[in-house]
Simulated assay, not measured.
Amino acid sequence: MLDSHFVFIPKQTVRYVTELTECIKVKSSDEDVDDSNEFVKFFPSFIWAVRDFTLERKIDGKDATENDYLEFALKLKHGTSKKVMEHNLPRECIQKLFPSRTCFTFSFPTAPENVSCLERLDPADLSTEFLEVTGRFCKFVFDKSDVKKLKDGYTVTGRVLGHLAKTYVDTISSGAVPCLENAVIAMAMIENQAAVKEGLEVYQSGMEKLKNSFPLELKLVSSEHQRLSSMATQTFMTRSFRDTDGKHLKSLEEKLNELFDGYLCQNEQASKKRCEDLLSSLSATMTEKLKQGVYAKSGGYDLFCKDLEDIVKKYSSQTNKEVKVLSILHNLMTF
């Protein structure tokens, strides 16, 4: 379930292959359904590694390739006796579950007297034929290992492989049968939640930088929100996995809008403070005149109107298009 190649050594019990479909489930349904056809979609390729091969590779007296030898070894017998059925069952399973099959026949690695110390042998003491097959075997594994994919074609990355391995191990440890569908669902939840988090981090990182320039015109804040939202969505899409109903994408969009509302509020507060501070500074002289009763004297009204007009002009020129410029100015006009 995790590998690109399944290396099978014939000296292992062949019956093990017949138990694969009993130890793995594709779907989570409790119904007793034969989903063996589904296994082919995600099972690895099959490598038949024959150790200590001493036979001649001949079929009907003719030289045969390693793959020919494999197919000959998997040939079914005719009949319905118990012995015939026991012979055929594992071979039928291999043919059905592993349409991609390759064989390597390894000769005895060294002289019999060296077998007890194989791990300490110098490469020069190993059989040249054994080394040749070993080289071809390694090259095949490295060159022909397709990227691992799940049954829906999703590529298994290193991170995803880690999630799958943990899920399978936890399931087996609990005594249950590993189920690909359940593992994929669990992995999708983990990956999509992480994708939402990464998208939000991209958005927040950009908006926090923009926040340092608050207060800003609403148009500028909205424009940056749109740009960063697009980046956040792209980040999410890059990592998301099987969000078929768009549940997690919708969650991301809702969280982005919530954050945007928060930044709008902060921008308004910054604008309000700046406008209030500016207006307080500009109107300080006028406020002092009011306290001293300057405007209550003859000609005071005209002076009041002139001072107020000067304040409004300076205020308007310095506040530009800030979001709270009018509401704060309204407060001045009504004091």
Rank of each mutant, 00 (worst) to 15 (best):
A183I: 01
A183D: 03
L326A: 15
S205T: 12
H87N: 15
S316C: 04
R120G: 09
R136A: 10
T238V: 15
F43M: 10
I328G: 05
M231Y: 08
S45V: 00
K291M: 14
F236R: 02
S145C: 09
S81E: 11
H87K: 12
T102I: 05
V115S: 08
L303E: 14
A73P: 00
F6R: 07
L259K: 07
T110V: 12
E22F: 08
S222I: 14
Y203L: 04
K62H: 07
E92Y: 09
G206Q: 01
L290Y: 15
A296Q: 14
V196I: 10
K62A: 09
L252S: 06
C93A: 14
Y69H: 09
T18N: 05
F98P: 03
G158C: 02
K148F: 09
S271D: 04
S4V: 09
D143R: 06
L210P: 00
S240R: 05
T167D: 13
F304C: 03
Q204C: 07
E208I: 10
K27S: 00
A176P: 00
F142V: 15
E86C: 12
Q269K: 09
L74Y: 04
N257V: 11
G262F: 01
F142G: 03
R101Q: 04
V156Q: 02
L264Y: 01
K144Q: 14
Q204F: 04
F98L: 02
E119Y: 13
